[in-house]
């Protein structure tokens, strides 16, 4: 699992690649939250994530609760059909705005 980060205007774009499970989720979480200052606008690009365990789902929700608790916003982009289904069936998707592409996600912040 790798996490890369860049800035597009006011938006922190975080791209995750690989698998997010119990062994990788803590690292992903701390890297994402390191940019989560107050009022943060965070876009997480999931297009290169092909598997996410229960711990991965929780990592995303922890990020959501942390960021939204500080007045910020999180959107997800590029969820595979499998991931979208899993997140939807387990109720996690209810918390997120999600978009097909990074561009569409960026537009959502404007």
């Amino acid at each position: 699992m790798e996490v890369s980060q860049r800035t597009e205007g006011e938006v922190e774009v975080i791209a995750i690649s690989g698998e997010i499970d119990g062994s990788t989720a803590p690292a992903a979480q701390s890297q994402i939250l390191s940019v989560a200052k107050s009022d943060a606008k965070i876009l997480i690009d999931m297009s290169q994530v092909h598997y996410m365990s229960s711990a991965g789902l929780r990592m995303l929700l922890v990020v959501y609760r942390t960021v939204s608790g500080q007045g910020g916003k999180v959107v997800l982009t590029g969820l595979s059909q499998d991931l979208e289904d899993t997140m939807s069936l387990t109720g996690f998707l209810d918390f997120f705005d999600h978009f097909e592409s990074v561009d569409a996600g960026l537009a959502a912040f404007n």
């Binding site: 229960s54 789902l57 899993t86 069936l89 387990t90 109720g91």
Partner: peptide
């Protein structure tokens, strides 16, 4: 549907 991923607890709660 997510039982194969071990997520039946979350799916039922949802």
């Amino acid at each position: 549907a997510t039982g194969k991923l071990g997520m039946q607890v979350d799916e039922f709660k949802a």
